[in-house]
């Protein structure tokens, strides 16, 4: 009996130690390899600006209740099935924002979802998409963020129930769902298509809302971009594959126009959380919007995931 008890305690200790090891942010780098953080020269601020709008940073991080999309004081509440997240301050404020960061810390945050002091970020911050960006683009984006105004004040903490409040557990989630792969261009496709895929799947992180998620919170891979329940809980996010229920009947110009003005071919103005997205994509150049449209037009049709049962009136 005593032996059994000792064995049990040893097993538990081993289990706890295993969990601790597996969930360490450094373990992720051991498994996936450390990202390239070498940055050659001074940042290209114009490219950084493009990536800032393509990446939609302002949608979550701009201080709510004011019109300047470049004041990134954070504080916006994002309600999700896992609890409420509060977007942090990413303005260049030295104490409350990212003013004290170096570029390598920024690249790790964007590609590995880890903070400078080694804590995991929750994937409400879409690093599963941002990991496609390379060191040079990320350095340009970081350079651009540094030119914005410093905003004082910190966002409230996330409000998450157990077990989602255990950040450490995210280490396992990342080992399962964060592949660490930077975008590679496909030489068999045009430069425009490759640019479009990069913008859509990388900084643009379209799939983060336009895909259904499994109970783990990870995107269902074979349903990518086919739409899904709004992660914030109301309504349904549209299918943007070439399925009939999606963008099959839209021309490339129709998609580019939507990204520019927010109007569908029927002159319905998109709303909800796509509203702020249009405020971002309207700042891009026509060539980039055209490239995103080119890539979306090339996607295979995927049927939308089933709608939630309609509530009785």
């Amino acid at each position: 009996m005593k032996k059994l008890l000792v064995a049990l305690v040893v097993l538990l200790a081993l289990g706890a130690a295993g969990f601790w090891l597996l969930t360490a942010p450094s373990t992720y780098e051991l498994v996936r390899g450390a990202p390239d953080v070498t940055v050659a020269s001074a940042p290209n601020l114009e490219n950084g600006r493009t990536l800032f709008w393509a990446g939609g940073c302002a949608s979550c991080h701009a201080t709510p209740g004011q019109d300047d999309r470049t004041r990134l004081g954070g504080g916006l509440a994002l309600e999700s099935p896992f609890g409420t997240f509060h977007a942090p301050n990413i303005s260049p404020h030295p104490r409350d924002g990212i003013g004290g960061w170096d570029v390598a810390s920024f690249i790790r945050a964007m590609r590995e979802g880890v903070s400078p002091d080694g804590r995991h970020y929750y994937p409400a911050f879409p690093y599963t998409s941002y990991q496609r960006m390379g060191a040079s683009d990320l350095a340009d984006l970081f350079g651009f963020l540094k030119t914005l105004s410093a905003v004082e004040g910190r966002a409230p903490d996330h409000v998450l129930p157990f077990p989602y409040n255990l950040r450490r557990g995210l280490g396992l989630w990342k080992l399962a769902f964060l592949d660490g792969k930077q975008a590679q261009s496909d030489p068999s496709k045009s430069a425009e298509w490759n640019r479009g895929r990069y913008l859509v799947e990388g900084p643009g992180h379209c799939a983060e809302c336009h895909s259904p998620r499994a109970f783990t919170g990870a995107i269902v891979a074979d349903k990518r971009l086919s739409g899904g329940p709004d992660p914030e809980g109301k309504g349904f996010v549209p299918n943007i594959t070439q399925h009939e229920a999606g963008l099959k009947s839209w021309s490339k110009a129709d998609i580019a126009e939507l990204l520019k003005t927010g109007f569908t071919p029927e002159y319905d103005a998109v709303g909800g959380s796509m509203g702020p997205v249009i405020r971002n994509t309207s700042q891009l150049g026509d060539a980039d919007r055209g490239a995103m449209a080119e890539y979306l037009k090339s996607l295979p049709p995927v049927a939308s995931p089933p709608r939630p049962a309609k509530k009785a009136d």
Binding site: F236, F263, A269, V270, G271, M274
Partner: peptide
């Protein structure tokens, strides 16, 4: 004038399809 469309839909409409 057209800016009004999206401005209102963003807050007061829920997308269902």
């Amino acid at each position: 004038v057209l800016k009004n469309c999206g401005g209102c839909h963003e807050t007061y409409r829920v997308k269902k399809s």
